[in-house]
């Protein structure tokens, strides 16, 4: 636009050219510099991922030079500190899985039921109060949950099951479950609220009652979102650290008895880093190998959840 404008002005001799000086150096430098600086900021996130991956791979590689990868992945005994040392990750995996399954057994039914209640049943006013309260559950620091598990849930479990120890998977699993309720409920509710009003109207107009609309129309229509929320919650439970460190114990144990003490991958990492492990030792390396396992699992689960949520969003 400016070029043509300028031509006309050249023809008109009386025009004061200074008025039409379209370049402003100071402004133009900022305008060119800022995008570069901002891109640098944005690349920090890429660098973080890069850093995580490189760190884990390098140290894990060193670890696998000493401990064969096969022994690590399929070994059934985890005894890194007490000789004879053994680095089979399965007990840590099974411990993690036990906690996660218990947590999901708590969180998925409760979270889904809460989501249905909030989205289909609750009057607006009730919903406005309950929703933020449930979301507070997600904001409570995990150390607080750890305290809650030790001081309230574990004694309750012990009074019901006499055989339960001070550290047991059940207590930690239940509390992790409570922590992830809002993940399930709020993401599922979002998915259910996204189901168009017109579908509900269609069902009501055929004489459906509320539960029929909720369970036969809304839940199926929102199913992918609900599954995605459950997968994310599952992944969150796997990565949870402080609750399991405090309440589940530190006994690598291949058991499915929820009253036993177990050790999760995360709790092991904490245990080693609390001690004074020298850099370069095999224990130090094991943190990274376990961390790598943890990272890969949660990463795949998160990608999976995003995939489900995206893939099935439109296509009912």
């Amino acid at each position: 636009m400016s070029r043509q404008g300028l031509k006309t002005m050249d023809q008109a001799q009386t025009v004061n050219k200074e008025l039409y000086e379209f370049k402003n150096k100071r402004v133009s430098i900022m305008n060119k510099l800022m995008p570069v600086l901002l891109l640098l900021c944005a690349s920090v996130s890429i660098l973080t991922t890069f850093g995580i991956v490189v760190t884990l791979i390098t140290e894990t590689y060193h670890f696998f030079k000493v401990i064969p990868i096969f022994d690590f992945l399929f070994g059934t005994k985890w005894s890194p500190l007490i000789p004879p040392k053994s680095f089979g990750v399965l007990p840590l995996l099974s411990g993690t899985l036990l906690i996660t399954v218990i947590a999901c057994l708590v969180a998925i039914p409760l979270g889904l039921a809460s989501a249905i209640y909030l989205s289909e049943y609750a009057p607006k006013r009730v919903r406005k109060i309950i929703k933020p309260i449930l979301e507070v559950l997600a904001g409570v620091p995990t150390i607080v949950y750890g305290y809650f598990a030790l001081s309230l849930i574990t004694p309750m479990i012990q009074s019901v099951f006499g055989s339960a120890g001070v550290f047991n998977a059940l207590s930690a699993g239940i509390v992790v479950g409570i922590m992830i309720i809002p993940m399930v409920s709020s993401l599922s509710e979002d998915a259910m609220s996204a189901v168009p009003r017109s579908l509900r109207d269609g069902a009501y107009a055929l004489g459906a009652t509320r539960f029929e609309v909720a369970l036969k129309i809304v839940v199926p229509a929102a199913f992918s979102g609900i599954v995605a929320s459950a997968v994310l919650a599952f992944s969150r439970a796997i990565g949870e650290t402080m609750i399991v460190t405090l309440a589940a114990g530190s006994t690598p144990n291949m058991t499915i008895n929820p009253l036993d003490s177990i050790q999760t991958m995360t709790a092991y990492i904490v245990q080693v880093s609390l001690g004074d492990t020298p850099h370069g030792s095999i224990e130090y390396g094991s943190i990274f190998a376990v961390g790598m396992t943890l990272f890969v699992i949660t990463f795949l689960l998160n990608i999976f959840a995003q995939y489900i949520a995206r893939k099935f969003r439109e296509e009912y």
Partner: peptide, 29 residues
């Protein structure tokens, strides 16, 4: 009210089929 709505059917402004098969849509009611 359920019987009333069975006796008094309704069609809406926007077509609002359920995310189901053609058969299941008709069989829903």
């Amino acid at each position: 009210v359920e019987t009333l709505r069975k006796k008094v059917g309704m069609v809406f402004q926007q077509p609002n089929p359920f995310p189901k098969s053609i058969y299941d849509n008709v069989a829903y009611g």
